[in-house]
């Protein structure tokens, strides 16, 4: 599985997802949000996974202790994580990496990018080159977004 970054490069790093019951290894790894919340006092992991039914605003944790937050698309039609991403960026001030995983395909990338996701664990059948091109499918957009401060609506007013 390739992890494409917003700048078109590939993310190369070893960061296994550790089961809630398994011991945490020394190197970078990811655990569930629930485990992170439960293990108070333990060092923050490199990454956590957030399932798409979590109200991120209700989670009172130091988000910026995390290098990565993994958002979940169990199927591409489940779009809750677009809102989670926008909230993490615009309201909760998270400035680490937001990684989309699951049913992640070329045609969602543009929207994901605009909502603030900046790494994409692509489904294995996706063409990397086409995905890179898709990230900049549209040169402009009406509403502002994580990767464009002034959308057309705001710019016309300015």
């Amino acid at each position: 599985m390739s992890i494409l970054r917003a700048d078109g490069s590939l993310l190369e790093r070893d960061c296994p997802l550790i089961d809630d019951e398994a011991p945490r290894p020394d190197g970078p790894h990811a655990i569930s949000l629930a485990r992170w919340q439960a293990e108070t006092g333990a060092p923050a992991p490199h990454a956590i996974t957030v399932s798409n039914d979590v109200d991120v605003q209700a989670v009172d944790m130091p988000w910026n202790d995390l290098a990565e937050i993994w958002l979940d698309f169990p199927s591409f039609v489940e779009g809750q994580a677009y809102s989670q991403a926008r909230l993490l960026r615009s309201r909760l001030g998270y400035d680490g990496m937001l990684l989309a995983r699951g049913d992640v395909m070329l045609d969602q990338l543009y929207y994901m990018r605009r909502c603030g996701m900046d790494a994409f664990a692509l489904r294995s059948d996706q063409s990397l080159d086409a995905c890179r091109a898709a990230l900049s499918q549209f040169s402009d957009a009406y509403v502002s977004a994580a990767n464009q401060r002034d959308g057309i609506l705001a710019r016309r007013i300015a």
Binding site: F76, V77, E78, G79, Y82, S83, R86, Q108, Y110, Y111, M112, R113, R114, C115, F138, A141, Y142, V143, A145
Partner: peptide, 8 residues
């Protein structure tokens, strides 16, 4: 139109 959060 193409609102990124509400396409799915």
């Amino acid at each position: 139109t193409l609102h990124p959060e509400f396409a799915y």
